[in-house]
Design a protein around this nucleic acid. Structure first.
Lengths: 223, 223
DNA sequence: GTCAAATATTTTGTATACAAGGTTTGCCAC
DNA sequence: GTGGCAAACCTTGTATACAAAATATTTGAC
């Protein structure tokens, strides 16, 4: 069985990724301890782990803050994510097994259902599963882990663009092409399609931030 | 000022990377506490952080073990490292600043000195600095951090091939070409050169393992 | 009434204490 | 002598305690 601090780490991490703990927020150890019904010790151990992967930051004598990356940094993360996904896709095209093929087609089918039902929540979930199948199909477990990790870290930022006009349909169409190239073993094409597929999310995030900045600037000048 | 657990983390990490603590070795918290003259609490906090980045593993009720990746996993890590370095190189070719140019040429110069003196230890150090300059020149701080992190994790495995015949000279020649492509802004060429430059290390590592396996198998059959 | 300084309180960072589980050793049986 | 079981000991995992530092509050002066 897993230990308390494992569970706490996942719970707190989840809280951060779902926005339960907002970026920049201070995480009070005593409060967390009460909330989870444990002592401060395992809470601290969980926080230490989260700080090591960059999800929170320790300020000396001032405790833990939820990391608040600037927009530039988030965009950079999307850039790296795109490259890693491209790599996974290329590797999957070269090395996928027959089982991977089944899994890919199944995952795609479930995405199709979500699209047909116009169920963005379901699509969000199935989309994640689809990408994880690609990671696994790369036959590179380290790459797969890194992709999954970064994917998770970017989750709150992808959330923002969930319901952008027509994005679900566009995403689904891109998946279709990606699958085709992976299954036909066209590594280069798979790489480029995935690169673009992920990059567009970074671009959208940038656009979003830019428009927010503009609004903010306008509000300031109006004052 | 930094806290005790920061220093401990770095010390223990260093111990692992330098081979002071061997892969698979168990890290006794009490022993470490005595050794560093502190209580078990900050030791644990340091270990938690190291476990989060995958340098050690916690076995329930059995404490921390230095992670002992199989050869396949290490090879996979080199594959990802190669891709990330390629990305950094391409990005550096597109976006390096005049200051980056100076830093790159200086780093290269110091590599040249080490080569001229046939000083593999110095070359090892300067080579690392050279690669870090490329990371920074990518102008992508997240990518830079990820590269540095993975680079560090692979250090003990690169160490094995330090004195392979003529590797230093070959490496230096590759650097020369890489610099050329980065400074001339040829992103694609820079990417491919760096990809190959790092991959060769993974290949060498594989070869080494394969030959070790062969020796081991022979020893077994001779029994 | 406001600003500043001093004190009180809260909170972090480290040490110590204790309980549960795992390992080792020693003893007994075969 | 060897194998298995039991008990003692050792280590981890969590809780509590305590000291140092930062923050909040209150009081006093202008």
């Amino acid at each position: 069985m897993r230990n308390t601090f494992h569970k706490l780490r996942d719970d707190i991490e989840n809280g951060i990724l779902t926005g339960d703990f907002a970026p920049g927020e201070r995480l009070d150890e005593t409060q967390l301890a009460e909330r989870f019904g444990v002592s401060r010790t395992p809470i601290r151990e969980a926080l230490m782990q989260l700080s090591a992967i960059g999800l929170i930051e320790f300020r000396p004598r001032r405790g833990a803050l939820v990391a608040d990356y600037g927009p530039k940094y988030v965009f950079e993360m999307f850039e790296v994510m795109a490259e890693l996904e491209g790599m996974a896709g290329a590797s999957a095209a070269r090395r996928h097994t027959p089982e991977d093929k089944t899994l890919l087609l199944n995952a795609h089918l479930r995405c199709e259902e979500a699209t047909a039902n116009d169920d963005t929540d379901a699509y969000y979930y199935e989309n994640e599963a689809f990408h994880h199948v690609i990671y696994a199909a790369s036959q590179n477990s380290f790459l797969s882990e890194q992709c999954a990790l970064l994917h998770r870290r970017l989750r709150p930022y992808r959330r923002l663009q969930l319901r952008v006009h027509n994005r679900m349909k566009a995403s689904f169409d891109e998946h279709k092409q990606i699958i085709e190239k992976i299954l036909s073993g066209d590594a280069q094409a798979a790489r480029e399609l995935l690169l673009a597929h992920v990059r567009v999310q970074g671009d959208r995030f940038s656009d979003l931030i830019a428009s927010l900045e503009k609004i903010k600037a306008k509000a300031t000048s109006d004052r």
